[in-house]
Design a binder for these strands. Structure first.
Length: 383
DNA sequence: CGAATTTGACCCGCGC
DNA sequence: GCGCGGGTCAAATTCG
């Protein structure tokens, strides 16, 4: 028992180090671990009725095991950190490409006609030196791109902040428990039986911060009662624990991608957007009719994994527009969908590529796993 | 006894 | 204008 507590403590510290992105902890000098280890070993020896000469041997064995375990956790921690850095870099690069493409698209579809554009370019040519050097050309291109990127980012952030106040993120997951373990403290303030679903819908309010505006609705799916639909609304106005942060990160990223896509391609009650494939193969992003039709809702479907037994996505639907489909290696490519050869890729490659290419998918998986594992194993390290 | 949950009443927006 | 349905409030109840 005490040994378990010691191990739990180790994992907590490891998680803390991982989340805070601090430098590697000197494990042997961590006083809380030392104390817990010491007390657990002492407790083990006190509770044991075997002769004293075996106690030391057992303690040494125990210590050795713990040290080995510690090294493994440490290695895993380092691997995860480097993986996270890599993923973040890929994500930033992809986001830049997407923003650039969006900006270009916006410019090309601006009300100004081609004549004006030609006039402008002629004027620019008159003002500029006739034949700029290659370096000059590259530099101006760089500057223009930077300015475009900054403008696009500002526009996107403003739109995101405005839309976030109303937009919702819905997570569908298979769970025995009606509550997803998302790490936040929620206070139930209502329950209703909605039309078309015999299962009641529960309303929760975030109870962690003072007057935190975040709310969530939890309801079991009418078609499949093993599926829990959790809908989040609003942004937290306080710091979050690691477990909650992963979910918040997921929903925020999903929303951001959704909003950036939906601004260009939403029509009627059906939302089709360019980034649906970012969540595949394990998550689909679909529009489900919600109680408030004016509020855009994105749904992360985490039930596909178990439903399809991790087969290659049926999730990539032809209903979803995919102007910038991602290849499995994270490079944008022009294609009409998934090529047949890609379908033949090994499942492991597909899954690992998807996880590598998309940090939000990683976070979504993390949240889904933690919800499945539940409270009983909260001491496990995060993905 | 305080905190959390339940539950019926009420409010409000939307469609007809 | 009216009814319907989703969302919220707050008193009552339950739980630790």
């Amino acid at each position: 028992m005490e040994g378990k507590i010691a191990l739990k403590k180790l994992l907590e510290v490891q998680e803390k180090a991982y989340v805070n992105d601090t430098d590697a902890i000197n494990w042997t000098e961590e006083p809380s671990i030392k104390n817990t280890l010491g007390s657990s070993l002492l407790s083990l020896s006190l509770n044991n009725l075997e002769p004293p000469q075996n106690h030391e041997q057992q303690n040494l064995n125990q210590l050795g095991l713990l040290q080995i375990e510690l090294e493994e956790v440490k290695k895993e921690n380092q691997n995860l950190r480097s993986m996270l850095n890599e993923i973040s870099e890929h994500y930033a690069a992809l986001q830049n490409q997407l923003l650039l493409a969006m900006q270009q698209k916006k410019l090309s579809s601006s009300p100004r006609n081609n004549e004006d554009m030609q006039k402008d370019s002629q004027q620019n040519n008159m003002e500029k030196p006739a034949l700029p050097s290659c370096r000059q050309f590259l530099n101006t291109g760089k500057i223009n791109n930077r300015v475009i990127l900054q403008e696009a980012k500002i526009v996107e952030e403003q739109a995101f902040e405005a839309s976030c106040k109303k937009a919702r993120v819905s997570v569908r997951a298979r769970s025995e428990s009606s509550l997803m373990g998302d790490g936040c403290q929620w206070r139930k303030y209502g329950q209703k039986i909605s039309k078309g679903n015999p299962c009641p819908r529960a309303y929760y309010r975030c109870n962690m911060g003072t007057a935190c505006p975040v709310r969530k609705q939890v309801q079991r799916c009418a078609e499949d009662e093993s599926v829990v639909i959790t809908t989040y609304e609003g942004n937290h106005n306080h710091s979050l624990p690691p477990a909650a942060r992963s979910m918040a990160c997921t929903t925020s990223a999903a929303l951001k991608m959704f909003l950036s896509g939906s601004t260009t391609s939403s029509h009627g009650s059906t939302y089709s957007y360019s980034n649906s494939d970012l969540f595949s193969p394990l998550c689909t992003s679909t529009y489900y009719p919600s109680a408030a039709p004016s509020c855009p809702t994105i749904t992360l479907d985490l039930t596909q994994t178990s439903k399809n037994n991790m087969k290659f996505p049926s999730a990539i639907s032809s209903n979803h527009l995919q102007p910038f489909p991602l290849s499995l290696h994270g490079q944008p490519q022009q294609s009409e969908g998934i090529l047949p050869s890609e379908k033949n890729l090994a499942l492991v490659d597909v899954v690992s590529a998807a996880i590598t290419n998309d940090p939000s998918l990683k976070a979504a998986l993390e949240a889904a796993v933690s919800s499945i594992i539940g409270d009983s194993q909260k001491s496990l390290p995060t993905l």
